[in-house]
Nucleic acid binder design. Sequence first.
DNA 1: CTTGATATGTAGCTCGCCTACATATAGGCT
DNA 2: AGCCTATATGTAGGCGAGCTACATATCAAG
Lengths: 105, 105
Amino acid sequence: MDADGIHGQLDTLILATLQRGEAHGYAIIAALKESSGEQLDLPSGTVYPALRRLERAGFVAGKWTQASGRRRRVYAITEAGSAALAKGRADWLALREVMTAVLGT
Amino acid sequence: MDADGIHGQLDTLILATLQRGEAHGYAIIAALKESSGEQLDLPSGTVYPALRRLERAGFVAGKWTQASGRRRRVYAITEAGSAALAKGRADWLALREVMTAVLGT
DNA sequence: CTTGATATGTAGCTCGCCTACATATAGGCT
DNA sequence: AGCCTATATGTAGGCGAGCTACATATCAAG
């Protein structure tokens, strides 16, 4: 699945990934690909701006690190981010209920 | 749930409702409220423009009718609309799989 | 004779996400 | 030495969905 199929769930997906442990952007993309069973393959142009939005919102905290010459910006989820994830998860479950009821699936 | 929780599934919800039979805008809003177990309450400013978009796209066909003095625009799903609904349903199921896998729910 | 339900629609706006591009280092292959 | 791929981060410009608020009209009930 490419990025236009996630329909507003991008932040929730990223926060859910970060709750398993801090990670940098490239690793988040790889983790989402892996945890989705190779179904999700998000472009960097989608994920990096999202991380900056989340950082501005106070949901993640970023810090620069160095790994074998390559600079990395490693993000960790904050308390506010955990709360946002909880809300995102609840919103998702509500949507799932409605879609299930209407589609009859 | 208000309209900002449906995240790109509006067209699919409307098409799914119309596949049970033709209906006018106001009835579609009521039907979605009913079939979702009173969870969905969409504002007219969301549904009516969506119906016009769907009509422009050829997914629904509208015709004016009269019922006890009130004019109604009754919409019926087209063949192209059925195909779009099938795709919308498939896209939704794919998203649901990914979300379930990543959220672990 | 006013209020609420029925019924449709527009104007203006915000924001999420996409596409395409730009940049840089490390490691392996030839 | 030179090239390609993987790793890694980011910007510019743009589109379109759906929201908020508003405007309009008829019918039924109190």
